[in-house]
């Protein structure tokens, strides 16, 4: 099954080339040049992974990560930054990021992370469905 991802970065040249390279690898790619646009797309659709730039105007990557997780707790977010610090990495993981990569990232590594994100998201969704079923079953005394 091909992956659906959202790439968020205020560098539009970066967005364009990443989208094209990922598309060549069979990934369905959406792009957003700002946090606001990213949140709009997250609300409108479902993605296996969100590749998120850390430093963006107005709303930065960590704030965006928090907002994405509040809207879709199962969303798998990979932070990508040209200015990665250990503190940022720790903060991102505490907020529920799947991973934290430094720019420029290796395409093969990134693809591997995206596949991992897809697998983890499926697992989370399955677990949720299972819990829901269990709740229904126990509430009806079956």
């Amino acid at each position: 099954m091909s992956e659906r991802i959202l790439i968020v970065d205020d560098e539009t040249d970066f967005l364009e080339v990443m989208a094209e390279r990922m598309t060549h690898r069979g990934v369905h790619v959406a792009t957003a040049p700002s946090a606001q646009e990213a949140l709009r797309q997250v609300e409108a659709g479902s993605f296996d992974a969100v590749i998120l730039d850390l430093k963006m105007p107005e709303v930065d990557g960590l704030e965006t990560l928090k907002a994405i997780k509040a809207r879709q707790p199962e969303a798998q977010v990979i932070l990508l930054s040209g200015q990665a610090t250990l503190q940022d990495g720790i903060a991102a993981m505490k907020l529920g990021a799947l991973d934290f990569l430094e720019k420029p990232a290796d395409m093969n590594v990134l693809m591997e992370k995206i596949r991992k994100a897809q697998a983890r998201k499926m697992l989370v969704v399955e677990r949720r469905a299972e819990e829901k079923v269990k709740k229904i079953v126990s509430s009806r005394g079956w």
Partner: peptide
């Protein structure tokens, strides 16, 4: 400056990667 350099290098790297693709 180093952050912007990294961004610039990332765009160059991905474009050369696209060329290889």
């Amino acid at each position: 400056f180093s952050h912007d350099f990294k961004n610039t290098l990332a765009i160059i790297k991905e474009n050369t990667g696209l060329l290889v693709d």
